[in-house]
Design a protein around this nucleic acid. Structure first.
Length: 741
DNA sequence: CACCCCCGGTTTTTT
DNA sequence: ACCGGGGGTG
């Protein structure tokens, strides 16, 4: 194996074979290279069977890229190895052995919309009022419980004593029962049910433990508790676990990711070896320095300092826009200028923003100028009504227990089957313990259904059953064609004769291309796998290198990607950082990491901008610049208006690391040796902790009086319940707190 | 009983 | 863009 293309640390990490290994990989430090070479090296130098290797990536796109890179190094034997996202690997495991925990191999996956529909039925059955508690509230709460790995029963054990939780517990139980009855799992269930399978069936677990002698996890900083446990289980026999990640790029706390998983890896896995990749191969010196000037404001981080051999590069281009239209106009002006002067092409540019809604202004302007662009995420193709309807049809064909999909399509297109008729079917189904679809097979017996309604129900039943019978023997594309023909969905849109309906028809045929591509690519194409794959696509998966278009996406969606020129836009208070992170230290730190991720996507040139005014929910509002702009080192920036004026009204001057501090390896090593002492010295904060204990009454400058609930000395965090502001987590050493006697 | 039109509220980030 | 509710029509 030729490892000459790797630097010393990369080589060391690649060549370390046994035991737990953590690779702390800063942005752009070549972690994908390390992962691929490590796996290729296992196969080629150490004669490990590819079937004994598991690799977990963050997106399906990353998985297929890694797959083809490994294949180019070791050849097609690599097909034997398992590589995919946590969710897709769990699906694979559950298809095989799910029946041991009550799920057949034809279970379907519910996305957030399906989840809402299922919840809505539960609301109805339990007489819960949507106006009192919006669906979303309980939807988040269920996901939160699942992120903490709490089944309804476990949740009840913990909180059952609280009468305010009773409704939720009832709902959560009903929801899980409904999913099982429908033979459906939501995203969180894919992980939890796999864990349940491992817990209840040690033989299954053992089989996988023996199989996966070498396990790899990318983006380990964004694993949640369930994923952590899965990895722990799977690596339980051989302990050959190779994880790669960067605490500074942890941006999914809100969906349960726990940064402690990476921070405490060495504690969790005794004898772990740690390698730090600190040389950046992606960005210019200026971009890197800017990133460092922002991220260093996070108090709780692992010591790490990225450096590069690259030249200083262009200064960061700063622009203060009048409003969001002016911001978009400037971006386009800059793109045109750089294409003209520096020979870039459209696909070299990416526009990164905090929220999907921000894409609008840019899209309008690109459209006006006739410039090719592509928006990742946001109003997704798969979110269109007609695509969701077709997906629901396909799910119902695969799994006729799926009442949620049934309800979605029974009267789409219109079959004169309204609320009353469906209610009658529901009553019959629940009285006879069968699915809504099966009840349609007994439609003649249902009282009050006759005439046209009866005929339509029977026709629907016949159509779906007919398609189901051909599931094994027919091409997926043939089934799809027959479905759109027999369901009459296209015909109904044709009759509308509107531009809107024509657009929907186009989408239906575009979706056929997706089916076709799946069929070509799969070894054993079947509808079940098509649905799973389609349900688990991420934004990045739709990325196509051959398109020459400017890319627009959220910073979250840009994770793991890189672009020659990046526009980081909308750097405004309340927007980025988000207004939701204002009261919460940890959330603010996560926003800062997000900013760091955005900056480090850029290779050669970075533009940052904010608008003084912005249309927000239809209101034109004055905006103030983001605290992150304040933290950026002004010496690295230039702009039309000279230096960003915001630097002058910062309340306290933040120390800026000028790029001289990290430019030479000498200085770098100073920083590296100095910092661990800071991290390893909780004594510094111990006095603050000795001042507090749980139950202490305290006052806070802003939040008023409250009581200490708990403390986390390692993280310097203290949790307090304030009388007027609820629970807050604060920095114990920094927060303006006083004890009250 | 089903269907259509109109109107208003909705958006942090996502597998 | 999509959904729900309200109200009118057939």
């Amino acid at each position: 194996m030729d490892l000459n293309g790797l630097n010393t640390v990369q080589k060391e990490a690649v060549c370390a074979v046994d035991g737990p290994i953590l690779v702390v990989a800063g942005a752009g430090s070549g972690k994908t290279r390390v992962l691929t070479y490590r796996i290729a090296n296992l196969i080629e130098t150490h004669d490990i069977f590819p079937s004994n290797i598991l690799a977990i990536t963050f997106t399906n796109k990353a998985a297929s890229e890694m797959k083809s890179r490994i294949e180019s190094l070791v050849g097609p034997v690599s097909n034997q190895m398992w590589i995919g996202t946590f969710h897709s690997i769990c699906v694979r495991i559950l298809r095989r052995d799910g029946e041991k925990i009550g799920y057949g191999s034809d279970f379907v996956i519910y996305d957030t919309t399906d989840q809402k529909s299922a919840l809505k039925s539960c609301y109805k059955e339990l007489n819960i009022d949507e106006k009192m508690t919006p669906l979303k509230t309980y939807q988040f709460k269920i996901s939160g419980a699942k992120n903490d790995m709490l089944t309804p029963e476990a949740y009840e054990g913990l909180y059952g004593g609280d009468f305010r939780e009773r409704e939720f517990i009832k709902l959560y139980k009903r929801y899980q029962a409904k999913l099982k009855q429908n033979q459906a799992m939501d995203f969180d269930d894919l992980l939890l049910k796999t864990l349940e399978l491992f817990q209840k069936h040690p033989d299954v677990l053992q089989m996988y433990q023996n199989k996966f002698k070498f396990i790899h996890v990318d983006e380990y900083q964004d694993t949640n508790r369930a994923q952590y446990e899965l990895v722990k289980y799977l690596s339980g026999r051989y302990h050959n676990l190779f994880v790669v990640g960067d605490g500074d790029q942890s941006i999914y706390r809100w969906r349960g990711a726990d940064i402690r998983n990476i921070q405490e890896f060495e504690k969790d896995y005794v004898g772990a070896k740690v390698y730090k990749l600190e040389q950046n191969y992606r960005s210019s010196q200026n971009i890197l320095s800017l990133a460092n000037s922002v991220i260093k404001n996070n108090p709780n981080r692992r010591d790490k300092m990225l450096w590069t051999d690259a030249a200083e590069g262009d200064k960061i281009q700063y622009y203060k826009a009048y409003d969001e239209k002016d911001e978009a106009r400037n971006v386009i002006e800059q793109i045109k200028k750089q294409i003209r002067d520096s020979g870039y092409s459209l696909s070299d540019f990416a526009i990164l923003y905090r929220t999907n809604a921000q894409s609008r202004a840019f899209e309008d302007m690109f459209m006006l100028e006739g410039i090719q662009y592509k928006v990742l995420g946001g109003a997704k193709f798969y979110d269109r009504k007609e695509i969701k309807d077709l997906m629901a049809y396909l799910k119902l064909i695969v799994n006729h227990q799926d009442d949620v999909s049934f309800l979605r399509v029974i009267n789409e297109p219109k079959r004169s089957l309204g609320d009353r008729t469906i209610e009658k079917i529901q009553i019959y189904a629940s009285a006879n313990q069968m699915s809504l679809f099966d009840a349609c097979g007994h439609a003649v017996e249902i009282e009050g259904i006759s005439g046209k309604a009866l005929q339509n129900i029977q026709a629907f039943y016949k159509m779906i059953s007919g398609l189901r019978m051909r599931l094994e023997s027919e091409f997926v594309t043939t089934l799809y064609d027959d479905l759109i023909e027999q369901s009459g969905i296209v015909r109904a849109y044709e009759l509308e004769k509107t531009i809107e309906a024509d657009g929907r028809i186009d989408n239906i045929y575009e979706f056929r291309v997706v089916v076709e591509e799946f069929e070509k690519r799969s070894e054993n194409p079947n509808l079940r796998d098509f649905l799973a794959e389609t349900s688990l696509v991420s934004d990045q998966d739709s990325l196509n290198d051959s398109d020459d278009a400017v890319l627009l996406m959220t910073i979250h969606a840009s994770k793991g990607l890189e672009f020659p020129v990046v526009f980081l836009v909308g750097l405004e208070d309340q927007l980025f950082p988000s207004f939701r992170s204002m009261d919460d230290e940890e959330a603010l730190e996560e926003e800062r990491r997000l900013c760091y991720v955005g900056i480090t996507r850029a290779e050669k040139c970075l533009h940052v901008s904010h608008a003084k005014n912005r249309n927000h929910f239809g209101r034109y509002e004055a905006r103030i610049p983001s605290v992150f702009l304040k933290e950026m080192d002004a010496q690295l920036m230039e702009g039309k208006d000279g230096m960003p004026e915001i630097k002058t009204y910062g309340d306290k001057k933040t120390k800026t690391i000028s790029f001289f501090d990290i430019q030479t390896p000498k200085k770098k090593s100073n920083l590296r040796s100095a910092a661990p002492q800071r991290v390893k010295a909780p004594e510094n904060t111990a006095e603050h902790f000795s001042g507090y204990k749980a139950g202490d009454k305290v006052t806070h400058k802003t939040f008023g009086s409250g009581m200490v609930v708990s403390m986390d000395q390692a993280k310097d965090m203290i949790t307090i319940v304030f009388d007027a502001h609820g629970i807050k987590k604060l920095s114990a050493s920094m927060a303006p707190l006083k004890t009250v006697d």
